[in-house]
Design a protein around this nucleic acid. Structure first.
Length: 563
RNA sequence: UGGGGCGUCGUCAAGCGGUAAGACACCAGCCUUUGGAGCUGGCAUUCCCAGGUUCGAAUCCUGGCGCCCCAGCCA
């Protein structure tokens, strides 16, 4: 274990520590991340990825496999595999050459099934799906045994081989484990191991027409790979006795399964079904919509893998269900990371023209600006200053409220990296009364933003030179839902009623400083005083820059104003 | 008398019989050429409840209460 960077303790690491101390698994630590390739990964999966790969990285000799649980050809597609691999890699993890598929084990699984049949521990059942359900009983009443339960080993073997050979239609027969129809644990009431499915599998093609159920495949796959600690979510707690039963019946390597609570976040939904619904019904632009909690969405939004990993570590691992982590925690991790690395630039989102009356017409000065006050090595850049500028509309109030430190008639403020200016005149639209432009004077002595006479100003504004600014589109993203728990709805309502109508506000003709001209898609910046933004990887072009707001800066003025 | 699991600050979460970590959020102040960042301080006399054991209990015992998961030929 690395001692210089101790991970927060959690009950799973405690169990592993104990296992190592006791020599269980000969001191080995081998985990796996086992996604089903039927959809895109989200932040909840990221928690599991960070857990499994994180543990493998932290323990001496630890390994973590990537295994696709591809036991259902009807729902799975090869396209998801590449997306999942890209996401895991992007998060910063490496599975070496240990990329496995449950489908790699179909033959072995078949042999295992034969063994169970021969041992009288599995049988072919001719009951229909509906009948099986009826025979299963209920939560409080025991089930009853299938009339086919006591077929001879020979008959079972023959039937099972013929199932594989394709002699029977879909749904006609299944192979079941012979356990206990009266068990209080429904999973033990003769669970189905194989179903007949004449479907083409994305990897095995038409080789098989019977496919193992997850419950039959998963534990054995872990065993085959020599996994020591099978970490999974709470809902599989009830399945553990079944997995144990299979492993014992087969007499093979027995991984230790440990269950933990899945991650939930405020202001979003996490279930694959709901996420799919949002995509299909057009509430978002796709799986990579920057508002989606998918890894692809977060990536496009401008999240960094470092922030996500930090978050996964901070939310921790426990067994408490219904634990909903505050998305503010995620956003904090993001800001903390971006604060260290994002270059500062100036961009005016809602431009208001400012004319410096006493600044020479036609003159342009290049002023030096620090790229990142948190990182000297980021250096400086030059930005043009001229007579006509844009500032943020919000930074001017004709009738400033208390504690408003920004520009107002007669008030002096600092333009970041530039000069002190004083507002001398307000030009309004005669009809609407809207403020169209401001006239100001500047103090030539305050170049760089400080006055030699030592006078102070309360406010510092960002700005861009009107003649030099570049037009850009800026997409302001906010939480997808406007309730911490989107599931909290009125009688007869739906979580979609809680969709935030302002989760995306698109601004065009924003003015950004000229240094952004060649900003690369995906690059991240802090727009001074506003937030972190990244160049959109899908829609941004050389001709038309598009920025996504990753997350806003903390805004204490907004808080004051709210009061 | 179906089975399994969980209940520690607004949120996440340590704690494993020796007298309630930490983080986020929040509040107050300092500082500041980003109302950002940073810094300082505050924030559970109490761990679902009630009994019991003990010199000592969030931790052990007993009994309650509350919440979650399970009846796919899904994973």
């Amino acid at each position: 274990m690395s001692s210089e960077n101790p991970k927060p303790s959690n009950f799973i690491r405690a169990i592993i520590d104990e296992d190592i101390k006791n020599g269980t698994f000969q001191g080995r630590v081998h985990t796996r991340f086992p996604p089903e390739p039927n959809g895109y990964l989200h932040i909840g999966h990221a928690k599991s990825i960070c857990l499994n790969f994180g543990i493998a990285n932290d323990y001496e000799g630890g390994l973590c496999n990537l295994r696709f649980d591809d036991t259902n050809p009807i729902k799975e597609e090869a396209e998801y595999i590449e997306a999942i691999k890209e996401d895991v890699r992007w998060l910063g993890y490496d599975w070496g050459d240990r990329e496995y598929y449950a489908s790699d084990y179909f033959e072995q699984l078949y042999e295992y099934a034969i063994k169970l049949i021969k041992d009288g521990k599995a049988y072919v059942d001719d009951l229909s799906a509906e009948e099986i359900r009826e025979y299963r009983g209920t939560l409080t009443e025991p089930g009853k045994e299938s009339p086919y339960r006591n077929r001879t080993v020979e008959e079972n073997l023959d039937l099972f081989q013929r199932m594989r050979a394709g002699e029977f239609p879909d749904g006609s027969r299944v192979l079941r484990a012979k356990i206990d129809m009266a068990s209080g644990n429904l999973n033990m009431r003769d669970p189905v191991m194989y179903r007949v499915l004449h479907a083409t599998h994305h990897r095995t093609g038409d080789k098989w027409c019977i496919y193992p159920m997850y419950d039959w495949a998963h534990g054995q796959s872990d065993s085959i790979e020599g996994i020591t600690h099978s970490l999974c979510t709470l809902e599989f707690e009830d399945h553990r006795p079944l997995y144990d039963w299979f492993i014992e019946a087969l007499g093979i390597h027995h991984p230790k399964q440990i269950e933990f609570a899945r991650l939930d976040l405020t202001y979003t939904v996490m279930s694959k079904r709901k996420l799919l619904e949002l995509v299909q019904e057009g509430y978002v632009s796709g799986w990579d919509d920057p508002r989606m909690p998918t890894i692809q969405g977060l990536r496009r939004r401008g999240y960094t893998p470092e922030a996500i990993r930090d978050f996964a570590e901070r939310v921790g691992i426990a067994k408490k269900r219904d634990s909903i982590a505050d998305i503010a925690m995620l956003e904090h991790c993001l800001r903390e990371d971006l604060n260290r690395r994002a270059l500062r630039v100036m961009a005016v989102l809602h431009p208001l023209k400012v004319i410096i009356d006493n600044y020479p017409e036609g003159q342009v000065e290049e002023l030096e600006a620090v790229n990142n006050p948190e990182d000297d090595s980021a250096g400086t850049r030059m930005i043009p200053f001229s007579r006509e500028l844009y500032i943020e509309r919000d930074d001017f109030r004709e009738d400033p409220p208390k504690k408003f430190f920004r520009l107002a008639p007669g008030r002096e403020v600092r333009l970041k990296h530039a000069y002190f200016i004083t507002c001398t005149d307000v030009v309004k639209d005669e009809k609407t009364g809207e403020v169209i432009e401001l006239h100001c004077t500047y103090d030539p002595e305050s170049r760089g933003g400080a006055s030699p006479d030592g006078r102070k100003v309360k406010g510092t504004l960002h700005w861009v030179s009107a003649a030099h600014a570049i037009d850009a589109e800026v997409r302001l993203y906010d939480h997808l839902f406007n309730k911490p728990n989107p599931m909290e709805v009125e009688e007869g309502g739906n979580y979609k009623d809680n969709l935030n109508p302002d989760s995306l506000v698109t601004l065009t003709h924003c003015k950004v400083e000229p240094s952004l001209k060649n900003a690369e898609p995906g690059s991240r910046y802090q727009f001074l005083r506003q937030g972190y933004f990244c160049v959109d990887t899908v829609d941004s072009t050389k001709e038309k820059l598009v920025f996504n707001r990753t997350v806003g800066l903390r805004d204490s003025w907004a808080k004051i104003e709210k009061k």
